[in-house]
Lab assay of single mutants.
Amino acid sequence: MDVFMKGLSKAKEGVVAAAEKTKQGVAEAAGKTKEGVLYVGSKTKEGVVHGVATVAEKTKEQVTNVGGAVVTGVTAVAQKTVEGAGSIAAATGFVKKDQLGKNEEGAPQEGILEDMPVDPDNEAYEMPSEEGYQDYEPEA
């Protein structure tokens, strides 16, 4: 019985440690998101679009440190934060509304985080759909 109880105690310690790591990862992701939003706020009209992409990228980098179902929630929060940063930029006159959601080359930025393969159960990952990809044929 002692062996059984000791095993359960060790398992509990492992769960607590994993929860603490997840909590730490979420806190880091939130900190990076805040950094990115402050970065966007300090940019001029020309830099705002690039700044919004930076927020998304920093958040995406930190999301990889967070495991399990938390990833889905962090990704949703990050996307809403990026959308909010863009709205703030438009409201303050840093950028025109028609410039939001495009990178410096004018290509749409939507789907940055949505296409990231995420499995809350950590069982399997699927690649994003290939609808947006084109076949590449090298020139002879």
Rank of each mutant, 00 (worst) to 15 (best):
V71D: 10
K45C: 14
L38H: 09
L8G: 00
G7F: 14
K34D: 00
G101K: 15
M1F: 00
L113P: 13
A90W: 10
S129G: 11
Q62D: 02
F4C: 01
E131I: 13
E13P: 00
S42W: 12
K80Y: 04
V52S: 04
L100A: 04
G67H: 09
E57Q: 07
S87H: 13
Q134M: 02
S42D: 07
T81V: 13
A69C: 14
L38M: 13
G31D: 09
Q134I: 01
V37I: 12
A30P: 00
I88F: 05
I112Q: 05
E137Y: 13
Q99D: 15
F4N: 00
T64S: 15
Q109M: 03
P117I: 05
K97A: 15
D121L: 03
P117W: 15
V40N: 00
A18G: 02
K12S: 12
V66M: 11
E35L: 13
D121T: 09
P120I: 08
K32T: 09
E131Q: 11
G25F: 11
L100S: 04
V48Q: 00
L8K: 00
E46N: 11
T75E: 03
V55R: 01
E139D: 13
K23H: 13
K45F: 05
V82H: 12
V15E: 00
P128K: 03
P120E: 08
T59E: 01
E61G: 09
L8F: 02
T72I: 14
A90V: 15
E20G: 02
E28M: 08
D115S: 07
N65Y: 02
Q24H: 05
E110P: 10
T59Q: 01
Q99W: 07
G93M: 03
K23N: 01
K97H: 05
L113I: 15
K60Y: 10
Y125N: 10
G51Y: 10
G25N: 02
G132N: 11
A90L: 10
M127N: 13
G14N: 07
Q134G: 06
D119Q: 10
V52N: 01
S87K: 03
K12E: 00
K32V: 05
P117Q: 06
A89W: 13
G25Y: 14
A91V: 10
A29I: 13
G84F: 04
G67D: 01
T72Q: 14
V63N: 02
E131S: 12
Y133C: 15
D2N: 13
G51M: 10
I88S: 11
G47H: 04
V37W: 14
P120D: 06
G14M: 04
G14L: 08
T64Y: 12
E137R: 03
G93V: 15
G31T: 15
G25C: 05
A107Q: 02
A17K: 05
Q99P: 03
K45S: 09
E83T: 13
V66A: 11
G73A: 10
Q134V: 03
G31N: 08
S42Q: 06
E35Y: 04
D98T: 14
T54M: 05
A89H: 07
D115M: 11
D135Y: 09
L38I: 02
K60D: 01
I112K: 05
E57P: 02
A124K: 12
G51S: 07
T64E: 08
D135F: 09
G51A: 15
M5W: 15
E137D: 05
D115Q: 12
V77M: 11
Y39M: 09
A76L: 11
A53K: 04
A78I: 10
